[in-house]
């Protein structure tokens, strides 16, 4: 468990680290490590980071350099922040950011609350058909959003939610809840049954067991579900494109595309600046929680 602030591994770390490395000696010779570790890592890094490099590069290139084919496309001679300036001052970009944030945070919270309850009920409350319900929820995850958006559009219209953030806040959970529930189910299952039975004998109610035993132990699982949900909301495109029409209600992914492309003219600079700025919040969220994220993917609750 890594939920506690006083993580014990900080004490005699140096001695332990040296001990650990001894068994791995064969990895230590530099040429060997280059081939087995650094080279593959480098390939990965290049493949993964190249889009970001291209985004960043384009966003600081002056327009002349963008069009001029005689220049080196991999580099920028005279960087400028004009595109960022244009984006923030002349467009509704800050508003789009705000919209995206509101939608992503609300939809994530909604989905996590619903998923926690659903997952706990499916895993731990004995009722007939609980496994069946679990299976159905996972099946729901397999239905692609690109099929669901047409019926959902009807629903959104009938409730008069069209072109409001609520349209997205209420539809995103249809994608998020199945996966989060499924992920949390796995996590709750890894919590020993006896802990809950013991709490039951200690006098806790179901609700107290959930809030004081199960949830504290599932923090890594909840964080991973949250990150997953947040990222998906942040990048979601189809629903945002279909359910929102006015510029001031748009989210970043849609707005960048629909407002910064006029006819067949691509404003590459602001477009890339918008994309880059748009990925910053997700990066921040990840960097904060990456440790939890990894631990929840690799290990269950240990006593």
């Amino acid at each position: 468990m890594t939920t506690s602030p006083g993580h014990p591994a900080t004490g005699p770390a140096t001695g332990v680290a040296r001990d650990d490395s001894e068994g791995m000696d064969y990895l230590m010779s530099l040429p060997r490590r280059t081939v087995t570790v650094y080279l593959p890592l480098l390939c990965f890094l290049i493949v993964l980071l190249f889009p970001f490099y291209w985004m960043g590069l384009t966003s600081v290139k002056p327009n002349e350099e963008l069009i001029d084919r005689s220049l080196n496309p991999w580099w920028v001679v005279d960087p400028t922040i004009a595109h960022y300036f244009h984006l923030i001052v002349n467009t509704d970009y800050p508003l789009w950011m705000w919209n995206t944030m509101v939608v992503a945070v609300s939809a994530t919270l909604l989905s996590i609350v619903a998923s926690v309850m659903a997952a706990y009920a499916i895993v731990r409350i004995r009722y007939s058909g609980s496994r069946w319900v679990g299976g159905m929820i996972f099946m729901a995850y397999l239905v692609p959003p690109s099929i669901l958006f047409i019926p959902l559009a009807l629903v959104v219209f009938q409730y008069g939610l069209f072109d409001s953030p609520m349209a997205l806040i209420l539809t995103y959970p249809t994608i998020l809840i199945p996966f989060s529930t499924w992920l949390l189910m796995g996590y709750f299952k890894s919590i020993p049954y006896e802990l809950e039975e013991c709490a039951l004998i200690d006098g806790a109610s179901r609700w107290q067991i959930l809030t004081r035993i199960v949830l504290p132990l599932s923090v890594p699982g909840i964080i991973s579900a949250g990150i997953f949900a947040f990222t998906l909301c942040w990048n979601e495109f189809i629903y945002a494109l279909v359910f929102i029409s006015s510029s001031e209600n748009k989210t970043v992914p849609v707005a960048v595309l629909s407002e910064l492309v006029e006819g067949d003219i691509y404003h590459w600079g602001p477009l890339m600046a918008g994309a880059l700025l748009g990925s910053v919040p997700v990066c921040i969220v990840y960097s904060f929680f990456v440790e939890h994220y990894v631990s929840s993917m690799t290990g269950a609750v240990k006593e």
Partner: peptide, 16 residues
């Protein structure tokens, strides 16, 4: 909880 019993489990079931 109304039975007023305490139980010690085989794997202790301490809250981690």
């Amino acid at each position: 909880k109304e039975r007023d019993v305490a139980m010690v489990f085989q794997n202790y079931a301490l809250y981690p």
